[in-house]
Design a protein around this nucleic acid. Structure first.
Length: 598
RNA sequence: GGGGGCGUGGUGUAGCGGUUAACAUGCCGGCCUGUCAAGCCGGAGAUCGCGGGUUCAAAUCCCGUCGCUCCCGCCA
């Protein structure tokens, strides 16, 4: 071994020890006859002192060393002289007096700073030299956090009787869901494997296979456009349990989430224990999304019963037509605005609302001085009594801005979501607060207007809620699924459901989602057949590990917790992937290119 | 497919019609035996992402394009 100790472990108690250490030059301070080197490795930084008189050869190496040179140092652990301890450093009470330094490898001058984390570096540059970016303290701690999280999950689930089972990466394309990544088969010309979007089918078959409690840290692939919290390949904690009901899975998963936070990131706070549960409908009605960030309380509130009695024609007509008028109270923003400033603010908000599909955005401000009038163009359409009712319904205070939305439900949702995201960006929310909540009672199906058919809101194996089973025949649109999504700070970190283990129920689903039995048998025959051999009742969940770790790390996107992520265009600018294949390879695979003309 | 942001020495920024393109840091050289974002002195380093246009004059204005990024669509 080239080191007897790491760069993070030596303390006063080690004074007098002869040690060997190795690592990177984090920083060098040249005093002439005396050179200090901060030697860095994964565990920390230790100061090396090199004296020209007592170790001239080591001094010569230290003299030529530069940042990121790789050194091995032999020396004596010594207490630092009175007054020279460094309290910022865990190892700051000692240093190593070098008697020998070996240059293991020099380094070119790095293209960006490894040894300090202030300032923003162009992401393309970081990606081009990701191996250097990973040396930075922030990345090291993110990747370490990820390791600890996954390790904790494995230990937790092992204790709960789960076993880890691998499933194929080369599997079968599925017509539903996201776009598949395809892998051509050489042995079966013209045929393709698909990379799994999730081990969904396989984990259910493992339940039929009698393992009862399965999990996997599974790589998943979806060929869709990227986002800050979406990569084409990502990691799921995938798990499935037999002989459970919805509540069993949710409770165990909530315990896992809670314990991860307490164990791995104790300085983070959970917004509530147990986690709040929000119905899918309430999530949309109040927050305009099924993954609400409940760290802030801007909500859309139905005030149709008030607005319908106003003299504002749009509201009156909409309420008559059965549409809602909803109001969002933005606390305090109007308090110190001049008329001109207020008009600019509301004009910008209206632009946002229009972009989300609204025809306009009405507003009223509540005066700070009760003697003043309400400001805003629709104020005059509300009588004094209605205004008081409105203020009471919205719990409005002086200086508040009330925003009104009235349109088709989907548009009101989109506007609510857009406005909330806008104000969220200005709020500087606390990343140490983890606002977990469950979203439940999803509809089993969502109507696809274009194709005139029902689509599964999660997937076709989701069991409807037991009390809604009859609705499959009478009113499928009202049937709720057993799905549960775990949401945190506006990100979907996981989701699952109880699955259909009964072939009869499964066979009811296919025609509803526009699939013939022949098609179903062709694509999912193996599943249906499996369900006929004593499939146990089962359910499970899949977690987005990247998103979870991102939230635990307080990182702004999942690339910060993935060692080698793709750029937004789905490329790797370090290794230059994807790349063209050799003609020979294509020939083996019986593939001819048909590229678009430029 | 659509909308927004960014692109200036190695890095991070300033400059936003006429500047010798500025500052910090890094880099190179010199001095220095208790520094720790070491200090002091000196030096090198930029076709202002790329292409085109407007103008007497473009880093600056316009158009296009490329790269990175945020969002919508998409992601069961």
């Amino acid at each position: 071994m080239m080191k007897t100790h790491t760069c993070g472990e030596l303390r006063l108690k080690d004074v007098g020890a002869q040690v060997a250490m190795a690592g990177w030059v984090n920083r060098r301070r040249d005093q002439g006859g005396l050179i200090f080197i901060d030697l860095r490795d994964r565990w920390g930084i230790t100061q090396i002192v090199v004296d020209l008189e007592s170790a001239p050869a080591a001094h010569a190496v230290a003299d030529s060393a530069r940042n990121e040179y790789v050194l091995q140092v032999h020396g004596l652990v010594r207490i630092r002289p009175e007054g020279t301890a460094n309290t910022d450093l865990a190892t700051g009470e000692i240093d190593i007096v070098a008697d020998d330094i070996i240059l293991l490898n020099p380094s070119r001058t790095p293209p960006f700073y490894i040894n300090k984390d202030d300032g923003h570096v162009d992401e393309a540059l970081r990606m081009r030299h990701r191996y250097l970016d990973l040396r930075r303290e922030a990345m090291q701690s993110n990747i370490l956090l990820r390791h600890k999280t996954v390790k904790f999950i494995r230990d937790f689930l092992d204790k709960e009787g789960f076993i880890e089972i691998e499933t194929p990466i080369l599997f079968k394309t599925t017509p539903e869901g996201a776009r598949d990544f395809l892998v051509p088969s050489r042995l079966q010309p013209g045929m393709f494997y698909a990379l799994p979007q999730s081990p969904q089918q396989l984990k259910q078959l493992l339940m039929v296979g009698g393992f009862e409690r399965y999990f996997q840290i599974a790589r998943c692939f979806r060929d869709e456009d990227l986002r800050g919290d979406r990569q084409p390949e990502f990691t799921q904690l995938d798990l499935e349990m037999s002989f459970v009901e919805r509540e069993d899975v949710m409770q165990l998963m909530e315990a896992l989430a809670t314990e991860i936070v307490k164990e791995i990131t104790p300085r983070k706070r959970l917004i509530s224990e147990p986690f709040k549960r929000i119905s899918y409908r309430d999530a949309f009605e109040q927050y305009g999304t099924d993954r609400p960030d409940i760290r802030f309380d801007l909500r859309s509130i139905d005030i149709s019963h008030i607005a319908g009695r106003s003299a504002f024609p749009v509201f009156v007509e909409n309420v008559k037509a059965g549409k809602k008028v909803k109001c969002m109270r933005v606390p305090g923003v109007a308090a110190n605005l001049s008329g001109t400033q207020l008009r600019k603010v509301t004009r910008d908000l209206e632009t946002m609302a229009r972009r989300a599909g609204a025809k306009g955005l009405a507003y009223i401000t509540i005066p700070s001085d009760p003697a003043d009038q309400l400001r805003g163009p629709i104020g005059k359409h509300f009588s004094v009594e209605l205004k008081l009712e409105l203020i009471e319904a919205m719990d409005a205070q002086g200086g508040d801005l009330l925003l009104f939305m009235s349109d088709r439900a989907e548009i009101v949702y989109a506007v609510t979501d857009a406005l909330r995201n806008h104000f969220k960006a200005e709020m500087d929310l606390d990343d140490d607060l983890l606002a977990f909540c469950w979203v439940i009672d999803f509809p089993e199906f969502i109507w696809d207007e274009e194709r005139k058919r029902w689509d599964p809101s999660q997937h076709m194996f989701t069991m409807p809620l037991p009390e809604d089973l009859d609705l499959l025949d009478s009113d499928p649109g009202r049937a709720r699924g057993s799905q549960y999504d775990l949401v945190c700070n506006g990100h979907e970190v996981g989701g699952g459901s109880i699955r259909i283990h009964d072939r009869e129920i499964q066979e009811k689903i296919f025609p509803l989602i526009g699939q013939s039995m022949e098609h179903a048998m062709r694509e999912f025959g193996h599943m249906l057949e499996a369900f006929e051999y004593g499939a146990p009742p089962h359910g499970g969940m899949a977690w987005g590990i990247d998103r979870l770790v991102m939230l635990l790390a307080g990182a702004p996107n999942i690339r910060e917790v993935i060692a080698f992520p793709k750029t937004q265009n789905g490329t790797d600018i370090m290794a230059h992937a994807p790349s063209f294949a050799e003609d020979e390879q294509l020939k083996d695979l019986h593939i001819q290119l048909d590229l678009p003309e430029e």
